[in-house]
Design a protein around this nucleic acid. Structure first.
Lengths: 188, 188
DNA sequence: GAACGGCGGAACGCAACCGTTACGTCCTGG
DNA sequence: CCAGGACGTAACGGTTGCGTTCCGCCGTTC
């Protein structure tokens, strides 16, 4: 009968620790310290650091985003961009995500988890978005959903998580029109 | 009179170690082991891990890429994409870059170094590219170089360094036409 | 051929974590 | 009211890495 409040404290501590020092330097002792908890409480729940992080992260990341359908492609696009924008603005998320992405490049288990939590989901959204737009006649028949996803998420991710340069007010608008134009041009 | 061959061995070892375990877990002892070198040889050259990594990385990253001018915007774009594509395909680079990007989010010194080595440079290329295209009448007057850089590098980086999904043969072509169309639409 | 200096290797004391164990306390369910 | 179990604390032996020091070796330089 593990105590729920303790579990919550640990989960929070892991997320914060992950943001501060990254996966590579995350230590169980530091997590316990931060959570105000004994190491035993942690080892009672998970077998080791990797298992713990994967379970916690995939739980957080797995909370699915509702598939948008605002009625128009421009609207859907704007909505998605706002959602991603908000998510990547979040201080903790914007530290953890790039860190785990980098870690995934060398740890297959992490890669698999992120793949399951993000990529699959993201692909579904992309396909739905593009599918709707094609059905409405807003995008040409052969539009590639893969390219679409890259064009939508790539610049945002680059700007917010990599380049980290300040984002002018009209930036999202510009990006939206740019992406729309881009996708309209990719007919086969 | 430090021996050059030893310095080279250390530099290589650092790059490989960085790729394998990341900055967070990089240890001087491991670098020395891999380079077949005593720790003393390392401490004789740099004061600590951060200093060492920064010096080595900024040296490698600082080797400037020639600014393209193929005569047409489409050509410039294609060239840049090929260059970035090649760079991010490189096994070691594709591990180190996301890792340091993530690290930069929490270490100002790393952030500054990467900024100096990459961002400044990248901005210059973007401005030159867009400037040329505007002068040739290939892009509208008010095209924003910032957005352009994000639209060019974002999707590529996302695909190669984050999503890491396989890249179809015609992908670069599609991306090129998409980006061209996108930028033509961003007039004020 | 002697002095110099960079070299690898080994060991230093110190600190942080690992994963495990024992203990005593406190809460809860029966 | 009692048994069980989850809790925090503390300590365990072992590993790893830090940054430093000392040694003996060897190639230069003069």
């Amino acid at each position: 009968m593990l105590r729920g409040d303790i579990t919550v404290a640990i989960r929070n501590a892991v997320m914060h620790e992950l943001a501060e020092v990254g996966y590579g330097r995350l230590s169980i002792e530091a997590v316990a310290r931060r959570a105000g908890v004994g190491k035993t409480a942690i080892y009672r729940r998970w077998g080791n650091k990797l298992e713990m992080v994967l379970e916690i992260v995939s739980d957080v990341a797995g909370r699915s985003v509702p598939l948008p359908d605002t009625g128009s492609f421009a609207g859907d696009l704007q909505l998605i961009m706002m959602i991603v924008h908000r998510a990547l603005q979040h201080r903790i998320a914007s530290q953890i995500i790039p860190d785990l992405m980098a870690e995934a490049a060398r740890n297959p288990q992490i890669a698999e988890t992120l793949q399951a939590a993000l990529h699959t989901h993201q692909q579904a959204v992309g396909e739905k978005l593009v599918g709707q737009a094609i059905a409405r006649g807003e995008l040409p028949e052969g539009t590639d959903p893969e390219v679409a996803v890259d064009m939508i998420l790539g610049p945002l991710y680059w700007r917010l998580a990599v380049s980290r340069s300040p984002m002018p007010d009209d930036y999202l608008e510009k990006l939206t029109t740019a992406v729309t134009a881009a996708l309209k041009s990719t007919a086969p």
